[in-house]
């Protein structure tokens, strides 16, 4: 197709949308993902990330990752000073590829999970969490 400016813009926008990641993802997040995936493409699919829409307090935010075939799941808090949160590896005695934990979020941000599936492919899921400021006593 003819590479007009219109087409170039649409191509770029499409690429951003296709990547599924927030266009303003920090470099640290991108680096963490690249290290995890070895630069491989990340798609969508067998991975669910559950987090509250509004976190009552950023200090203790409950999250859950769930997958059917994930071997390893990495969680990143894209808006934290350093995005790494945790990496879950599932062993032979794991009944499911699900895990829950509680994390710290420095402010409103997208939490991202990347999973390495049994077939070697990578998928991702993200959840936007609003971290609130209270009135009196924070």
């Amino acid at each position: 197709m003819e590479l007009t400016r219109r087409n170039a813009i649409l191509l770029g926008a499409g690429a951003v949308l296709a990547s599924g990641l927030p266009a303003l993802a920090s470099t640290a997040t991108d680096d963490a993902i690249d290290t995890f995936t070895g630069g491989a493409a990340v798609g969508e699919g067998d991975l669910k990330l559950t987090a509250p829409e509004i976190a009552e307090n950023g200090n203790t935010v409950p999250i859950e990752v769930a997958s059917s075939t994930a071997v390893e799941i990495m969680v990143l808090a894209t808006g934290n000073p350093t995005p790494s949160v945790a990496t879950f590896k599932f062993g032979s005695m794991a009944a499911t590829r699900n895990a829950s934990t509680r994390i710290r979020l420095a402010g409103t941000q997208d939490v991202v999970a990347i999973a390495k599936l049994e077939d070697g492919s990578f998928v991702q899921a993200s959840s936007a969490v609003k971290v609130t400021i209270g009135g009196c006593g924070g």
Binding site: E56, T60, T132, I133, G135
Partner: peptide
């Protein structure tokens, strides 16, 4: 009422001592 994003309670103390998420 909401005081910023905090949901104001009646200030009852039947739940004390309280584990606050804020200071864990």
């Amino acid at each position: 009422m909401m005081i910023r994003a905090d949901h104001l309670s009646q200030g009852q103390i039947n739940g004390f001592p309280v584990y606050r998420l804020k200071n864990t």
